[in-house]
Nucleic acid binder design. Structure first.
Lengths: 306, 306
DNA sequence: CTGAAAGCGCTTACAG
DNA sequence: CTGAAAGCGCTTACAG
């Protein structure tokens, strides 16, 4: 009899109703949310892949929430996680714009929260991030080692943790080398292509323009390249360039990009791992996982020139 | 009284339970699934963005399913859509591997189905695709116009519709120009980076290697560039190159890429639009939306050389 | 160990 | 128009 029921279920392609499961059960939910600040940012493509792969392995289903830099949209998706009775969520918050209290509320409702690359609610939640200061430090130190004294930086949005960290790495590398930090060489590109385009032009127009440039993320590197092309500035002959974030195309650029590579896929996997641990042990102390970045030296920094 | 209840709901941050809503209601579900064959393929990044933006505007929530080329994983996610009581799903199927009957079953359960770039179940469902034949035709015709007689092609997986269409465009352009189609110049790169790497080496090793190359997608172009670099083949001086799919980095490659640009963001938006229409009119005849591709001429084709 | 009952939070159809 | 009741498909606690 049991056999015949199971056989019939198979035949009719019976699928247990997950909405009913989640509604009834307090504990079992196989839904997790992934809130990323913008899918147009190549940085997240590989993060999403890491999350998606490990989630699939653990039968967790993924709701992708493309926050797209909008606080309103972030709020909407946080509400959604609640009303969908998600088991947990992985979020790269809109940093200082984000209300940490809302995350607390969600946790009180039994939703596991894992943070990616943020200073929001730091220490109160599990989180994974990469060592932005160290990465930027190594990138800029490399430029210093090549003899550059006037090194500019196109930074990310002022006040956002990753931007601050990378800026600190830049400062530390200069200070260590005894090079004074010149505020005129620090330009905010707002983590956007257009912002970096403007910032780069501004740096080039300085009375004493930089001989080298550090750009704090991938999207901005695109804007910088555009500005350099418009002005006919050759890389690395006239300007040495180091970026942040590596993508598959980096080696094939007109000047193959020297850049600080983040372990993005690992960030995604680690976030899911933290989530799984939190689901298993809801009361464990929050974990802070820091992954290392490494410098990939190609040609845009001018390393091969001397 | 009514006011006071609403006030309390706001205060407690009440969110209607969507699992209960979907469970109870036969019609109202705001969940849609997006099954893409691989998030590592840059082609889909902008498709996902188009879907995500329009879905958000219409209060549809997105479950991202990264099928990753695995039929097993595709089945898993189709089952999931059923058990989540999704309103609909947008799928780029694993083409001839996919079981069209499963899609029929899901439709019978009241799930709206929209296809992207496939020949599976063609004509029986709403679908959106781009004119791959026309795109490849224009790309190859451009190479012919520049004087090339031996033009190779790194094709996508044999049997998959998009690959076949693009190959047909290649054939048509040659035939039109009175150039015989030489099967030795047609190499299957399986829509993968490594496959394209192999295919490109094979073409270069031909007794009479091609003077120009057409590559049928973005991922494969990466493999081709790698192979060309290994062999020290200069683009466009020694080999003219035309790709398929445009990405933000294309202009900044060592030889800025001439490529067939697909309206990927529009594909995503159009898919959601079809889904919305289907939800509103379940019995309307299936729509087949074909979007045009256009050739972006940069330098890798050698257009500026003569 | 097995089986019937209660109930998760909604929507919908129906009685007043 | 308003309000109470039934029920979506499960899980869980409890009686037999």
């Amino acid at each position: 009899m049991r056999m015949r029921v199971l056989e019939a279920a198979r035949k009719l392609n019976y699928q247990p109703d997950q909405t009913a499961q989640r509604l009834r059960s307090q504990t079992t939910s196989s839904l997790i949310g992934l809130l990323i600040s913008g899918i147009n940012n190549a940085h997240f493509h590989s993060v999403v892949q890491g999350v998606s792969d490990l989630a699939y392995n653990h039968q967790l289903n993924l709701m992708l929430c493309n926050v797209d830099g909008s606080l309103e949209r972030e709020r909407y998706y946080l509400d959604l996680m609640q009303s969908e009775r998600a088991a947990g969520l992985i979020i790269n918050p809109q940093d200082y714009y984000t209300d940490g209290q809302r995350l607390d509320e969600l946790r009180r409702q039994g939703i596991a929260v894992v943070l990616i690359d943020t200073s929001v609610a730091r220490g109160r939640f599990d989180q994974v991030r990469t060592d932005g200061r160290g990465g930027a430090y190594r990138g800029v130190r490399h430029l210093v080692g090549l003899g550059h004294q006037r090194i500019g930086i196109v930074t990310g949005t002022t006040g956002i943790m990753t931007a601050t960290e990378r800026l600190n790495g830049y400062r530390d590398a200069l200070t260590e080398a005894g090079i004074p930090v010149d505020d005129a060489l620090i330009c905010d590109g707002r983590y956007e292509k257009d912002g970096a385009h403007r910032a780069t032009l501004q740096l080039l127009d300085l009375p004493a323009p930089p001989t080298a440039l550090f750009v704090s993320n991938e999207l901005m590197t695109l804007g910088t390249l555009e500005a350099l092309r418009e002005r006919g500035v050759r890389v690395p002959q006239e300007l040495a360039l180091v970026g942040f974030d590596d993508i598959p195309w980096s080696p094939y650029l007109s000047s193959p990009l020297t850049t600080v590579a983040q372990p993005t896929y690992a960030v995604g996997r680690e976030a899911v791992r933290l989530l799984l641990r939190r689901l298993a042990e809801p009361d464990a102390p929050p974990l802070d996982v820091v992954l290392q970045n490494h410098l990939v030296v190609r040609e845009s920094c001018g390393a091969g020139l001397r």
